[in-house]
Amino acid sequence: MFDVLRKSLKTGCLTEKLPVRDEAVSKAGTACQKEIARVFGKSMAVRMVDAGSCNGCELEMHAVNNGFYDIERFGIHFVASPRHADMLLVTGPVSRHMQAALKRTYDATPSPKLVIAMGDCAACGGEFGVSYASCGAVSNVIPVDAVVPGCPPTPLQLLEGILTALRRR
């Protein structure tokens, strides 16, 4: 126990003004907070849906929750159910096998809701496009408010994408 406390104290607070393009991103985070207050109240709950991703985007979603980015400080929280969500963060080209599940998840999310297509695959089909197995871009299946390009988008690009979606409301 003592070792754990000592290590925690020694590590200190990791959460930093984001290191790359520092000012732009701090600004993006704070701007997000302001927009969230306007659109949803105090915070925004996000449900992620992997509709066919390679798992790269998911790893960066984990990253925005690590100590460095700590997206919760901007009032953005990942939740377990679409019924608790204000925003759907959808990744992957939509595989045909996930088409029905994605639509049902969308329907289960209460309005007003936002949908972000995260990553090149979700934005335009990416390497996979439309085929016997894939519906391509998320917008081919459900309405999309904003896309975040990148393969995968970095944590910073993701934050900026969320801001773009909020500003459109």
């Binding site: 992997d50 991703s53 080209p93 595989s95 096998h97 496009g129 085929s131 197995a133 894939s134």
Partner: peptide
């Protein structure tokens, strides 16, 4: 499984 089958081999 098979939910994220996106036809990689065919593509």
């Amino acid at each position: 499984l098979g939910y994220v089958h996106k036809g990689i081999e065919k593509l």
